[in-house]
Design a protein around this nucleic acid. Structure first.
Length: 496
RNA sequence: GGUCGCGUGGCCGAGCGGUUAGGCAGGGCUCUGCAAAAGCUCGUACAGCGGUUCAAAUCCGCUCGCGACCUCCA
């Protein structure tokens, strides 16, 4: 494990705390995954990207991470505007498919999206339907401990009872007494004793194709239960980091805490992390607002709010330029700026892979400055995964790389050892920590050879001062979105 | 109504008590056959009004504006 000073903003304490895993070098990381009834939109991508960085950086530091991210494939009965909705079941009807066909379709879709954005897969990706017996057992433990009651085949978590001995609402800062205000009125048929109670097992009749036998009759597990069960099963009753989008803080994560305490008497999570929302025109991206953009729409540019497409790595870079805990607004202007910045970054990345390094005659203060900038990357990553600041240092190093390549005298005093370190850290930061990669097309090897030939021909023309030919070549290539760059040591090319 | 958070230069976005954030765009310069690329350099911003302090974008109060959550949500 590398020496580190990692601090994490803990939602539970509202403080930045030094990260001390329960059992180093092992780290348990749980992230709430998607409900697979529709394609993931870009807001979902942002959240999973935030925790991809957490996962990657912990691994870079040498921790042995077990990253668990669930797939919610049960049609939980969600209460939407007074209607009871099973989203997977609804979608199945809409598409005329079996619920499990919907689950499969959108699970594959989700995996494809995480793949194009270069996210590392979780180590365990458990499904809710694969853990029905464990969920039933957990309901049973909560019942036995007196924190739940059964009504007509459903089981509800008893918040007033739980709140007698526990602080329900501590994660989200909710005051349970005042919560009554915002709640919908209980209607006459409602089985709950208290509006704040939530279902941990829900009775369903034969109109729901997905249902399971339980000691309380046929039904489905409650939404919050699966995460408690699966995190416990794979990471233990108490584990290191639990992440998710801010909008899950209440009630989902609050309920998870209550369930773990109610079933096992254990405070389940040591560090709670919440990522902020992606907004579009200042509003949270959401299907119900009609302002959500699908990843493939942003890549292709086929969306009424976009005037061009952006590559997956441009989008990833764009998101990393903001801190995960701040809201981020998506706009054409910001994406275009990111596109150019990303390109400059990756050009420097390519340069340093092959750039010859020289022995310095006299090592100057610049050498120390370069080392300090390199150190700065880790100082910032250690500070609650501050990717925008880490990128700021990376860009300072882009200037160092370009200047060194151009033999600028200011960098003559940087030692070969420092440049080797720069190469190593720059490469590792881009690839392993930030998960950015050069986006090459499949035919680049052939094109590379052809381009070298064209560059040689043009070089001959230039040597003969045949500017007509040399400019013709350059302009025609430019029209093909291929850019020539004449440098001191010859000409290189890049895609525009 | 309750809880939490935010308002930074033309745009995006860090910073959260004293020191250059960074990216993009724009101006100037260097290099170059010309251009591009690259490098150097310039802009001097912190919603408003008060207060604390030797010192505030950063702390406190008020005002205005915006957003998230309050059992669908990443």
């Amino acid at each position: 494990m590398k020496e580190n000073n990692l601090h994490i903003q803990n939602t539970l304490s509202r403080k930045k705390e030094k990260f001390e895993p329960l059992a180093p070098p092992f780290v348990g990381l749980y992230v709430c995954g998607p409900t697979v009834y529709s394609p993931p939109h870009l807001g979902n991508v942002r959240t999973f990207l935030a925790f991809d960085i957490v996962n990657r950086y912990l691994r870079y530091l040498g921790y042995r991470v077990r990253y668990v991210r669930n797939i919610t494939d049960v049609g939980h009965i969600a209460n939407s505007e007074g209607e009871e909705v099973d989203r997977i079941g609804e979608q199945a009807k809409k598409e005329n498919l079996e619920p499990m066909e919907i689950v499969q379709k959108y699970t594959l879709d989700f995996h494809e999206v995480t793949h194009i954005f270069n996210m590392l897969p979780p180590d365990i990706e458990p499904t809710a339907t694969g853990h029905i017996p464990e969920q039933i057992e957990m309901v049973d433990r909560i019942l036995k401990n007196g924190f739940a009651y059964e009504r007509n085949g459903s089981v509800y978590f008893n918040i007033p009872e739980f709140a007698k001995t526990h602080d329900y609402g501590k994660l989200s800062g909710q005051n349970i007494e005042e919560q009554h205000e915002g709640y919908r009125e209980l209607d006459a048929q409602d089985e709950k004793h208290d509006v704040r109670d939530f279902a941990i097992w829900k009775f369903t009749d034969e109109t729901h194709p997905m249902r399971w036998n339980s000691p309380w009759g046929e039904g489905v597990p409650g939404w919050h239960l699966e995460c408690s069960v699966m995190s416990t099963k794979y990471l233990g009753q108490k584990f290191d980091i639990h992440g998710g989008g801010m909008d899950l803080k209440f009630p989902h994560h609050e309920c998870e805490i209550a369930q773990s305490l109610g079933a096992d008497g254990t405070e389940p999570v040591r560090y709670w992390m919440h990522s902020n929302m992606l907004t579009m025109n200042g509003q949270k991206m959401s299907k119900s607002f009609g302002n959500s953009i699908l990843p493939r729409e942003l890549v292709s540019g086929e969306h009424e709010l976009l005037d061009q497409g952006y590559s997956p790595m441009t989008i990833r870079f764009f998101m990393l330029q903001a801190h995960y805990s701040s809201p981020l607004d998506l706009s054409n202007e910001a994406l275009k700026a990111a596109e150019k910045g990303y390109k400059r970054l990756m050009e420097a990345y390519k340069v340093i892979q092959t750039m010859p390094l020289r022995d310095a005659k006299n090592v100057t203060d610049t050498d120390k400055e370069v080392n300090d900038t390199i150190d700065g990357i880790f100082v910032e990553m250690d500070d609650d995964f501050n990717t925008p600041k880490a990128l700021a240092h990376i860009f300072e190093l882009v200037t160092v790389i370009n200047s060194y390549r151009d033999n600028r005298p200011e960098y003559a005093g940087v030692s070969k050892a420092t440049m080797e370190r720069l190469r190593e850290v720059f490469t590792a930061t881009i690839n392993d920590i930030l998960g950015l990669k050069v986006e090459e097309t499949a035919d680049d090897n052939t094109v590379d050879g052809l381009m070298q030939l064209i560059i040689d021909i043009r070089q001959n023309a230039r040597a003969n001062k045949d500017w007509t030919t040399s400019d013709l070549i350059r302009d025609q290539l430019d029209a093909l979105e291929l850019q020539l760059k004449d440098g001191k040591d010859g000409t290189t090319w890049t895609r525009k």
